[in-house]
Simulated assay, not measured.
Amino acid sequence: MPTATGFEKRIALAAPQLSRSKCQRLALKLAKRAERMQTVEDFYTALRVLGVSPDPTALDAIRRMETT
């Protein structure tokens, strides 16, 4: 997983007009957001919440699990 320093370097390369402090602040925000995205919700839970399922039988199985 990218670190704040890695994000800072990428931002500095993509937007050289930004000051170093702005790059650091943006990088820290991105690193925190990336960390939250990895830990807050499980991938399959997120799919269930969004109602996205490639297989309709999976939705039926989840409904059965929720009702029992």
Results as ranks from 00 to 15, higher is better:
M1E: 09
M1Q: 11
T3D: 09
T3K: 06
T3M: 10
A4M: 07
A4C: 07
T5D: 14
G6N: 15
G6T: 15
G6V: 15
G6S: 15
F7Y: 15
F7V: 06
E8D: 13
E8M: 13
E8F: 04
E8I: 12
K9F: 03
R10W: 14
R10Q: 15
I11V: 14
A12C: 10
L13M: 11
A14K: 08
A15F: 04
A15K: 00
P16H: 02
Q17D: 12
Q17S: 11
L18T: 02
S19L: 01
R20T: 12
C23Y: 01
Q24W: 10
Q24P: 01
R25M: 06
R25L: 07
L26Q: 11
A27G: 09
A27P: 04
L28V: 15
L28I: 15
L28N: 13
L28G: 11
K29H: 08
L30C: 13
R33I: 15
R33P: 04
R33T: 15
R33G: 12
A34N: 08
A34C: 05
E35D: 07
R36V: 07
M37A: 13
M37G: 10
T39A: 00
T39Y: 01
V40A: 03
E41A: 14
E41D: 13
E41M: 14
D42L: 15
Y44K: 11
Y44R: 12
A46R: 10
R48W: 06
R48D: 02
V49L: 11
V49I: 13
V49H: 07
G51N: 05
G51Q: 01
G51R: 03
V52Y: 04
V52L: 07
V52T: 03
S53P: 01
S53F: 02
S53N: 02
P54S: 08
D55E: 09
D55T: 09
D55K: 05
D55C: 07
P56F: 09
P56M: 03
T57K: 07
T57N: 07
T57H: 03
T57F: 03
T57G: 04
T57M: 07
A58E: 08
L59C: 08
L59N: 09
D60G: 08
A61L: 05
A61K: 03
A61Q: 05
I62W: 00
R63Y: 01
R63S: 08
R63I: 14
R63E: 05
R63W: 02
R63F: 02
R63A: 07
R63G: 03
R64N: 05
R64A: 11
R64W: 00
M65S: 06
M65Y: 02
E66W: 01
E66Q: 04
E66L: 06
T67H: 00
T68H: 00
T68Q: 03
T68C: 00
